[in-house]
Design a protein around this nucleic acid. Structure first.
Lengths: 156, 156
DNA sequence: AATGAAAATACATAATG
DNA sequence: CATTATGTATTTTCATT
């Protein structure tokens, strides 16, 4: 299913997806050709789903981040899904979670400044009929970890 | 500062960081040599900060996600920073945000099942003295967008 | 499933327009 | 910035174990 070598490959590629296959092979102690076969298998099995460049949000003109908690009404499947699609289509949205609890969505946004945030909230959120309530949390700091390890159970 | 070609390069590499330079050049309509220079410059200027493989959390044995909202007391710089470092060191943590508002941290975690989540909350969070209050939101769905566009202001 | 060697590609650099 | 050329390195295939 997923042995120690696969786990090592996943770990290395989470940290640097552009690591040359030759170097990756050396780090996980297999031949380059073997390594390539394994990486391809991990992609085909859907374990590795993609490789994405990480970009500095400040450099993109979006130094200010916030988490917007949204309560949706009516709380129907169609309305919830439609809002999820909509909110992800906004250029300011980095991620959106549909959660259980008093709030229905937590939306992570990145904007230029407070004025931009206010405009986003007014034009992008509160104008929508299904948005019943909004709570905005400014982010002082957001740290994402790239290396998520497999649990012991999935390693054979 | 950042022209239309750079913006296109950033867009393409956010979607696929392993796109060969030749193909990338074709997509953004420049010569491969030019493209390579620009990609290197974007990395050196800190616009592109890294490339990371995205992995299916279910395949890693972590199909259940939650956002844990944590209130910290005392609310001092040292305690807040120490908790942030600690929480990011947990293998279950994917991301952690230090936010303004009633809650101090929003911690995104990925676990095996409800039992694992309970154990994480009890052993990893509530045992710590600085954790004053916890609210756990189960995630039904988390969607992250890879392509974050630059704002109009940073494009010249 | 893993390996080593050969063939195909891609990269990095430089010179020219 | 585009083109071309060139040497180097890497990726990929494949026969073999």
């Amino acid at each position: 299913m997923f042995d120690a070598i696969d786990a090592a490959i996943v770990r290395e590629l989470q940290n640097d997806a552009r690591l040359p296959n030759k170097d990756l092979a050396a780090r996980v102690n297999v031949a380059p050709s073997t390594c390539l076969v394994r990486v391809r298998a991990l992609r085909e099995r859907g374990v590795i789903t993609g490789c994405h460049a990480e970009v500095d949000l400040g450099a993109l003109g979006r130094p200010l981040q916030a988490i917007v908690a949204v309560r949706i009404r009516p709380h129907t499947r169609a309305v919830v899904r439609r809002f999820g699609d909509y909110v992800l289509s906004l250029p300011e949205t980095i991620a959106a979670s549909n959660v259980a609890g008093p709030d229905d969505f937590l939306v992570h946004v990145a904007v230029t400044d407070a004025a931009h945030l206010q405009q986003l909230l007014l034009d992008g959120f509160t104008t929508r009929k299904e948005v019943a309530e909004l709570h905005t949390n400014l982010l002082f700091d957001h740290r994402r970890k790239h290396e998520v390890p497999p649990t012991a159970e999935v390693i054979s």
